[in-house]
Simulated assay, not measured.
Amino acid sequence: MSIVAAAPTDYTAPGVEEFWQPLFGTDGPWAVTRPILLMVVATGLVVWWLLATTKKKALVPGRGQMGTEAVYGLVRNSIAKDLIGSKDFMRFVPLLFALFTTILVNNFFGVIPPFSYPTFSRIGFPIALSLIVWVVFHVVGMRKHGFIGYWKSLVPAGLPKAMIPAIFFLELITDLFTRPVTLALRLFGNMFAGHILIVLFITGGWYMLNSGGVLVVAGGVTWIFAFVMTLFELLVEFLQAYVFTLLAALYIGGAVADEH
């Protein structure tokens, strides 16, 4: 008699359907989905936290105020000031702080029950934030250098005339297409892949635990890996919020730099 029990045959590996979860309406662009609801919840949580921890500011801060000041200091000093420069950085701190906190909370939703869903694993959300950054750094660059001067500066000084058209075209593609697309895809890809891997480990482990025989042991090991993956995903979620904000500041800094 085999020590492996007959396994259930109805297991289906998680796929892209995990990321389309309509709550109201079943199809079309007007469906209210789970990530839309989570974005609203995340925005409410960020606003509530900021109001709660800054309403009664103290010289000796409590833990809540200290946490808020730590996050603000990270964005203000380590990102905005370092990459944009001490002359122009302050006017962009609110935008960068909003980007970082919004992305961070929504990313953490991916491993926090009962949410268990990273909002930015839906491509529309990273695209929306990337378009905001794209518009901002182009607008401030043109305001700083003028319309002609901004686009003219894409070509470094001193190039041979024969190379200018090719270099201008490549830099134009980078500014208009490559930057916003890679900014969105980096965040989306990491959140999508991390979420689907965790779901695969959890559901696959549950499947094996209910299969009997030695598969029970394999299911237990799989759940251990799911726990390890969840811890790793927490780090990835923080890093993706940091990297997105860092690149946004880098693009803005390049647009307003005197030598642009």
Rank of each mutant, 00 (worst) to 15 (best):
F97P: 01
D175M: 13
G124D: 04
A6C: 10
V214C: 02
V47W: 07
S86C: 10
I252V: 10
A31V: 02
K144R: 10
A226E: 07
G205A: 14
P126W: 14
F188K: 11
I132L: 08
I127W: 07
M163F: 07
G205S: 14
R143Y: 04
E237G: 09
F192I: 05
T26Y: 00
Y150P: 01
A31N: 02
V139C: 01
V41S: 07
G205M: 15
F108S: 08
A70L: 10
V105E: 00
L104Y: 08
Y251V: 05
E233D: 13
L96D: 06
P61Q: 07
Q21W: 01
I196F: 09
V46L: 06
P126I: 14
A193C: 10
A52G: 06
A31M: 02
G124R: 03
P126R: 15
A7P: 00
V228L: 15
V71E: 09
F232M: 12
K55V: 14
D258E: 13
L183M: 10
M191G: 11
G254H: 15
V256C: 07
A241G: 01
D88I: 01
Q21H: 03
L170K: 11
M163C: 00
L197W: 10
R179F: 07
P180R: 00
A128E: 03
F227V: 15
V243G: 05
F188H: 14
T230F: 13
W206L: 13
V243M: 12
G254E: 15
L95R: 12
I173R: 08
M142K: 11
I3S: 02
